Simulated scan of single mutants.
Amino acid sequence: MPMRDAQGTLSIPVPEVAVGTGRPPRPTRPRGPATSVRTGPRLYAIDAIRLLAALMVAVHHYAGTRRVNQPDNAIWDRPVSEIMPTVFHFATYGWIGVEIFFVISGFVICMSCWGRTPRQFFVSRVIRLYPAYWFAIVFTTAVLAALPGVWERLRPRDVLLNLTMLQSGSGVQNVDGVYWTLWAELRFYLLFLLVVVTGLTYRKVVVFCCVWGAAAMLAPVASFPLLDLLAGPDAAWYFIAGLALYLMHRFGQDLLLWGILAMSWLMGQRELGQRIDEVEHVSSWRGAVLLYTVFLLVMIAIALGLTDRIRWKWLVTAGSLTYPLYLMHYAAGTTLINRLRDTMDARLLVASLLACFLVLSYLVHCCVERPLAGALKRGLDTSFARMRNAGRADRE
């Protein structure tokens, strides 16, 4: 059957003739682990959605949260709904950008890991996550130290622990509140590594989606903290949706994948409602579900190849700004709003801050991420090579 590779190109397997029969064997789905990922056009549309999601989150934090709409809040000093009511109305839904990130993460991780070894998976995650994150911690800590009064500064030992990205597992506060999503991402990587170790196949990823979904469904009522920690029910169904979408993209659609995606949507809309009730309190469930549904429809279009004609090169650069922008915009940005809110129109201030953080994100990508990622990759590759050679020497 036609298969779509990791980058979107359709390929049609040519069946080999069975020896002694003169007729081709019955076509089947690949059963063994993939050994390589075929090249093809980049999915530029995903880069565009990633940047849009990051901007949604940033605008939400600046002008749409419950915190900034309180009287005498430390950021704007009065309810932002009074300062810019129209912006506030739309910004209240920006938090959905986080759920969009999770779905895209499930899609992209599955795509980038296909045909890779566990070592390559580990190295790719380290060089992708840590360079910009380390810079963001230093940058945010410096801004909060220079401009106190809005956010509490952490103790030096807690800031240092944040450099590991494991602070949530140690019960230590994040340097910036947005880092909570990284804890969800790390748990997803840990779980998915179990599949990568055995070799990625269509069947194994489908089974993984079903098992993880069952665990996420049972965790809230199981009264078993370890299950709740590993299953991460508040984010699991978004990652699962991304995995199902990538399988559609690579192997084509079928009823089972549509069923997994439908289950993910049904469970996801419930999680959206819970987040509104327990955390956000500023947006409606109907509006949130509508936005999330529209996003999933766009992702389905991407998975089915309907956006393959979008090949604007600048979107690659736009996508590269997403991670640094997300890491740096919140604590530092709201602190700057506190200092600059009386100097210009509020809408202009928000737009100016976003523009400045986009420029800073580009500089971080070029001057920090790229050089550090290259150095880390070379160092880790050397380290793993030494381990491999040492293992051979021990056997000899």
Rank of each mutant, 00 (worst) to 15 (best):
F102A: 12
F102P: 01
F102L: 15
V103L: 07
S105K: 04
G106W: 05
I109F: 00
C110T: 15
C110N: 12
M111P: 00
M111F: 08
M111H: 08
S112Y: 06
S112M: 10
S112L: 11
T117N: 05
P118A: 04
P118M: 02
P118K: 02
R119E: 14
R119M: 13
Q120V: 01
Q120D: 12
Q120R: 14
F121I: 07
F122H: 07
V123F: 05
V123H: 04
S124E: 15
S124R: 14
R125F: 10
V126K: 11
V126E: 12
R128K: 13
L129M: 13
Y130Q: 13
Y130E: 09
Y130A: 10
P131W: 00
P131V: 00
P131R: 00
P131I: 05
W134L: 13
A136T: 00
V138S: 05
T141C: 12
T141Y: 08
A142V: 11
A142Q: 02
L144E: 06
A146E: 06
P148H: 07
P148F: 08
G149W: 06
G149C: 00
G149R: 04
V150M: 03
V150T: 13
V150A: 05
W151N: 11
E152C: 04
E152M: 10
L154D: 02
L154E: 00
R155T: 13
R155G: 11
R157V: 14
R157I: 15
R157H: 14
R157S: 15
V159D: 05
L160V: 14
L160M: 12
N162R: 07
N162K: 05
T164M: 09
L166G: 08
L166W: 10
Q167F: 09
Q167I: 11
Q167T: 08
S168G: 15
S170K: 15
G171L: 08
G171S: 10
Q173N: 14
G177H: 14
Y179A: 06
T181M: 09
L182A: 06
L182S: 07
A184E: 12
E185D: 11
E185V: 01
R187D: 03
F188N: 01
F188A: 01
F188K: 03
Y189Q: 04
L190I: 12
L190W: 07
